[in-house]
């Protein structure tokens, strides 16, 4: 009885469990023995530079790709392409604008509703409410190919939540969007979190991860580098970063207190003191910047 309740408590806490997954493409390891857990109701970010294995991990979590080994559990059930009960439980916003170009905005939502077996009357109501919620109501009769990037992303987002999933997966949801559209998406995600959704997304934008995530997983070369709360990770590295050029190369030094960083900077020329961010955590742990693949 006690064991059962502990199990139930753990299950409730961990909405997603990724256990020792591996994936290779042409003998090149894309994901290397990756394990992590995601708590129910949290916003969880997979952060890393291009080629870190974020999208591969994302695709395995959404059954779009099968892992070579290891297991992924969603709400206690093993992920599988033909497992309808798991698929009902999540919504997906992929990196590409995966919208049928010859279909109108409302038709795209209608199709999604039909695929999720939502009753016609409820479907109609939901489409109306979601279009209002996302400010796309006036564009409901436009073909999706005629929408802007931000509108397409919003449409993908409301499509993904139309069947009221418990988990929302987003792969680089704001890539290529202008700052206003990006903030709109952030606001929508925060709103969804308030409604109790577990949000999992990949990103290589530092600001996005810091602003949105309750927890992040830093990835590099398919491996887990660190997992934790953004503020805690930054605090561990040091809240202040001093940037300076040494032998023509940008070097970063990390300090816990502002005074320490000032003392250090005093002894050098051409320095920049700033508050540390997640990129600094990444630099400290990997010697690689998030923005590019070059080692610093």
């Amino acid at each position: 009885m006690i064991i059962r309740s502990i199990y139930t408590m753990t299950k409730e806490k961990n909405m997603i469990e990724v256990l020792n997954i591996n994936k290779s493409f042409n003998e090149k390891k894309a994901v290397d023995n990756l394990s992590f857990r995601i708590e129910q109701g949290s916003i969880f970010g997979l952060l890393g530079p291009n080629g870190a294995g974020k999208t591969t991990t994302f695709r395995m979590m959404t059954a779009l790709l099968k892992q070579d080994s290891g297991n992924i559990f969603i709400d206690g059930k093993k992920i599988d392409r033909d497992e309808d009960s798991i698929k009902k439980n999540f919504g997906v916003v992929s990196q590409h604008f995966s919208l049928q170009s010859e279909m109108k905005v409302w038709e795209i939502l209608e199709l999604h509703g039909m695929l999720h077996n939502i009753n016609k009357k409820i479907r109609k109501n939901k489409i109306y409410n979601l279009l209002k919620f996302s400010d796309l109501y006036a564009d409901r009769d436009k073909l999706s190919k005629n929408l802007s990037g931000g509108m397409k992303r919003k449409l993908m987002l409301i499509r993904a939540i139309m069947h009221e999933p418990n988990i929302l997966f987003l792969d680089e949801p704001t890539a290529g969007l202008d700052p206003i559209s990006r903030r709109d998406i952030w606001a929508l995600l925060k709103e969804l979190k308030k409604k109790g959704l577990t949000v999992v997304f990949t990103t290589h934008y530092i600001e996005e991860a810091e602003k949105l995530c309750d927890e992040i997983l830093l990835m590099h070369k398919g491996k887990k580098i660190k997992k934790g709360i953004p503020k805690d990770l930054i605090k561990k590295v040091g809240n202040y970063t001093v940037e300076t050029y040494e032998k023509g190369k940008l070097q970063c030094y990390f300090f816990k207190a502002h005074k320490e960083s000032l003392d250090f900077a005093e002894k050098r020329q051409e320095v920049n003191i700033r508050k540390s961010n997640l990129e600094d955590v990444f630099i400290k742990l990997t010697d690689v910047r998030l923005g590019d693949k070059n080692e610093i």
Partner: peptide, 15 residues
Amino acid sequence: YDKTFEQYLIAPISI
């Protein structure tokens, strides 16, 4: 190319 086939693979519809 447009990756819309993904919509079917992630939906609760049998292969």
